[in-house]
Write a protein that binds this DNA or RNA. Structure first.
Lengths: 342, 342
DNA sequence: ATTAGCACTCAATGACATAGAGTGCTAACA
DNA sequence: TGTTAGCACTCTATGTCATTGAGTGCTAAT
């Protein structure tokens, strides 16, 4: 497709542009990288690279800037899976993760690590609670008409919610309901706990009386209201370090994007590949992210995807570092998760 | 201090500036507000107002801009406690609050309402957990070496945390510990549950064996690690609607301020006044907020302050609306809190 | 005490020239 | 035939300068 030399030049352009954020000219290129050819020759090759769509000239007589297609080639050719630059001293940082019991905290901390190591914005998605199976449901009576419901799933997610009851209830009834629910719902996927199920069940527990039936229905309702996926962000303000976001409008739209939890979650969960996924600018489906790149990894347990880790930043991203950091962090997380639950 | 006319002019300047964000000139003033005097007279008065430090001329031959001192006078003179502009149709919005059981959700939703009604950024601080008293502590065994600890305080705060145990434990021991803890700690302020207390207690429960002692110590430790105050933000990106934040640097430093949870919490908890507090620009102690204003209200139960609600924005803030909305929302919240816990 | 009139100030705006980085093309060269 | 030096050309960025206009302060008249 491209001869060795063109590839080398493209690589140099991209590396330089990633570093400097300024259009790269032929003279700069020949001075900084010993390509062994003159600026004039480089110019000819650059003209070809532009024809092929790998680089773009912002205006006549300016240097060249990589296109999304260019980045794509660069990532495919030069990044691959070679784990360069192991994060050594930072393993100390990772070790702190070991101490964390809750998966939510772990994800929050992971995204902190990711953003600190890469200087971009990190996103972590929790496992989908509705896809997980109920391991335990606990009811705690706070006072005669308030109940805390705690749900623990097989994937280690813990959710609590408070229910205000229309009717008073005593401790014994709570115990009855608690036993009943654990008995009937244990092992069920949360998404399968529907109003239809309630009806089926209600036949069986009719003997427990109408009050209890009512309370169970309230519990179901609160189940339905919890977030399916929690999103953890860190390093949001990192974008201000990049000149592409010196424009208030761009900064604003980036930051507003990060507030659209649903969009983010749809975007990121669409990367279901094995291992790592790099998605560059216009390759993204959503308009809001067409000038951003994402490097996304899944974390799994027993070969099923639990959740996602992602780095988002400008298309002028240091893909090499990000891919390397992401690979290592996500592998570490997975190791941790799987060792915990054995 | 100031004659009626000067006051009236100052008011007009501030109102105009709040609306337009542009320095206000004498001609504009005489045209837009029927002050009954000519621009020349206004100019003389404005010169006086400037000498007194209530308004500032950004440069010779520009219009006038209110100073922090000017805003202060304006707020003291014209805002007071007259509840203008009741949020009527929005009471529907408030009604949604009634449905929320958990205080955390309630605060999150309150800050959403506040930011939507005012178009500024809203902050809500949860009650300080360490100042509250333990009402109930619940232990849930997930598996043989993971324990969930749930704490419920008298102020309705619920916190959970997961503890990984170094040693295995069975259900019966958990029950023993649970009973023991509830027995000994019920009614104690969380801040008083210290390592010293552990030692005192350990003498009493020595008969329960070393394992249990160890576990209790782990529980204490996890108590110590929870956040004392949770901070809920909403409407963060609202600042982009104000021309003062069209400058990337200012926008950045504002947004970064909002990430400094500790600073925010110290700043806001310092307003312990009865009712509402308006803090304007340079009146704030922290450097980071010297070009912002805050309108802060406390919410209480039985005459003790539980937490805070606050609106933060540029000193050119629509104090009138903000104070009005804040008064109403905070009163609503308090009503709600106190009715729930009766 | 108020106001009309006027000279003055200064930011904002736009027109214009200049500098400089970089290109594409041509012709010479190995 | 591929490579390169040389050169004219392009276009942004930067700086200068004049113009405009909103607004002021001062003075003198009312």
């Amino acid at each position: 497709m491209l001869n060795e030399r063109k590839l080398r030049i493209l690589q140099a352009i991209i590396q330089d542009y990633i570093e400097t954020a300024a259009p790269v000219g032929s003279r700069t290129l020949s001075k900084r990288y010993n390509l062994g050819i003159s600026p004039a020759t480089i110019r000819n090759e650059m003209a070809d690279l532009e024809d092929l769509g790998f680089i773009i000239q912002p205006y006549t007589s300016a240097g060249r800037v990589p296109s999304d297609k260019g980045y794509r080639l660069y990532v495919d050719q030069f990044i691959s899976l070679k784990k360069t630059k192991a994060i050594e001293q930072d393993c100390l940082v990772l070790d702190l993760l070991r101490e964390i019991g809750e998966i939510e905290q772990m994800l929050q901390y992971s995204s902190k690590i990711l953003s600190q190591l890469t200087n971009y914005t990190a996103i972590a998605l929790s496992p989908q609670i509705k896809e997980s199976r109920l391991r335990h449901i606990q009811l705690i009576l706070i006072n005669s008409d308030h109940l805390i419901v705690i749900i623990i799933t097989d994937k280690g997610i813990i959710k609590k919610s408070v229910i205000r009851l229309d009717d008073k209830i005593d401790r014994d009834s709570v115990q009855v309901i608690s036993n009943f629910l654990n008995d009937k719902l244990h092992g069920l996927a949360v998404k399968d706990i529907t109003t239809e199920l309630i009806k089926t069940l209600s036949a069986e527990y009719a003997h427990l009386g109408g009050l209890i039936e009512k309370i169970i229905s309230e519990i179901f309702q609160s189940l339905d209201e919890i977030n399916d996926i929690d999103i953890f962000l860190d390093g949001v303000m990192n974008i201000f370090n990049f000149p592409e976001y010196n424009d208030v409008l761009r900064a604003r739209s980036f930051l507003e994007l990060l507030e659209k939890k649903e969009l983010l979650s749809n975007l990121i969960t669409s990367f279901e590949d094995e291992g790592l996924n790099v998605s560059i600018g216009s390759e993204n489906t959503y308009e809001e992210v067409k000038d951003c790149s994402l490097v996304t990894a899944t974390y799994k347990m027993d070969d099923t995807i639990l959740g996602w880790l992602s780095i988002i930043g400008p298309t002028r991203m240091d893909y090499s570092t990000v891919v390397s950091v992401m690979t290592q962090v996500s592998e570490f997380i997975m190791e941790l998760l799987n060792s915990k639950h054995k």
